[in-house]
Amino acid sequence: MYNKDNSLTSNSKGVSQYKYSLTEFCGIQTSKGRRAIEKLDLLLLTIEALDINAPISLTSISRSLELDHIFPNHVEIWKSRCHNPMRKSSRNAPINRESFDALLFLLSTMSQRFYPQIRQLLSSKDSKTLYEKRWSEFCYRFDDLISERMNIRRGAVKKYLTRSKQSRIFYKNLLFVLALSSGKEGLSRLRASIFEPLPNSSFK
């Protein structure tokens, strides 16, 4: 199991060492919590759009972080992510705190692994043609994943799909959040901000 400093401890029974305030802990089952799981799932989807093999990496990283008791296989990760109400096949039951914490930890580790790709997209100092090529590939893959996984009949998803065609700000914000979430301090930042809405998001 992991604690606040990302170090793994084997003696705990799977309860995170990180302390949420009472309102935030209760928030996992409320609208604030729903927003958090939406944000978390969307950030994981962004990583999937960066690399086609990200779902496989997710399972292997989960194993290397000794999260086997929470996510023994990729289906369990998928089931936890399905608590996102924006998904086509969403689960109504609230996500438990242990899985939520583990997903946060996974996201932070994944963003650290994919930091070079995230950086490439955020950097405005590369050659224009290369920059445009990378962005068009990423946007295409991300929109494709949104259409495939999310319930496009929902107003928020529809709104996003139309907005994303007009501007890249939403993508950039997602990538910037991912960049700042990597590493040990990044995990602390991510935990502090996960209950806040995404900047310029239509998923509110």
Binding site: L122, S123, S124, L175, S182, G183
Partner: peptide, 11 residues
Amino acid sequence: LDDAEISDFIL
């Protein structure tokens, strides 16, 4: 600094 550079600095 742009977003990538400030991220580098922060990390």
